[in-house]
Design a protein around this nucleic acid. Structure first.
Lengths: 142, 142
DNA sequence: TCAACAGTTTAGAATAATTATAATGTAGTT
DNA sequence: AACTACATTATAATTATTCTAAACTGTTGA
């Protein structure tokens, strides 16, 4: 739970001006107990429900991308028509529920360490993301 | 290396009519030594280069999705503005080169078995996909 | 063989997410 | 206060993909 002043400092420290739009977005994204997953549309809706004056969709895009650049958000690799983001920037993986299109965190304790034996010369590994697609188990219960 | 007749049988066997468009797409996709990755656009371009009369883009979409339904293609989970498909339908993972946007197979021998400890009640695991993002290692060579 | 029908193809329109544009606004500095 | 670079905004543009409805074709069975 950060306060407005802390957001201001954090933004300034990373070279982003603390505008009122960015502060509002910080509040919506980071002023929570738990991390969560969202799409740009989710976020824009969330903001407009909480706010009288609206924030332009372009600003939401700009801000989310800026926050991602600065490492305050992670983009999740899933092939969907829209992009998913995560406020949990720690190293972790995901379940994707194909019935509900819902993302669920899979913490590192829930998965054995992944050891990649192959090496691509001249390249370094930036990230290793596991996506576990799940769906209702009805088939097997017949 | 399959012949035209074999494609016809395969299509019929899975309830798809062997039209000349589908046979051409089969040829482009499956008449090769090695499996490969592609986007719809790649495929459409590839076809139009090899063919005088063109295949409608809608048909390419329809066919790729039909082939995916039947299990002849796999879609790769990567967050990009476009969808990537793979003619290698075996269980395997991918490197994604962020410099070139190129996908590289990571065979199962190249990665230790992934053991998921967490269980989501009432849900079965449909797939486990690992995406390893890589990029040039120049930074470290300074 | 051929008519009938369901499955396919097609061009083009529609949709949806995202990015670009260019004018206006604002934070930070002098 | 004034200047400047960065931000926001509405809107247009772009891009991948899906939809639509008409024309076409593979298959079946008389």
């Amino acid at each position: 739970m950060l306060k407005n002043n802390e957001f201001i400092d954090k933004l300034r420290a990373s070279g982003l001006r603390p505008t009122k739009q960015r502060l509002k977005i910080c509040e919506v994204l980071f002023n929570r107990e738990k991390t969560f997953h969202f799409t740009i549309n989710d976020l824009a809706k969330n903001i407009s429900e909480q706010l009288n004056e609206k924030i332009s969709l372009a600003t939401v895009y700009n801000t989310v991308h800026a926050f991602k650049e600065k490492g305050y958000l992670k983009e999740i690799s899933i092939n969907s028509n829209k992009s998913y983001f995560d406020t949990n920037i720690s190293d972790h993986h995901h379940f994707f529920d194909e019935d509900t299109s819902e993302l669920i965190d899979c913490d590192n304790e829930d998965i054995e360490e992944i050891n990649i034996k192959k090496n691509i010369t001249g390249k370094k590994i930036n990230s290793v993301e596991v996506l576990i697609k799940i769906a209702s188990d009805n088939q097997n219960q017949k």
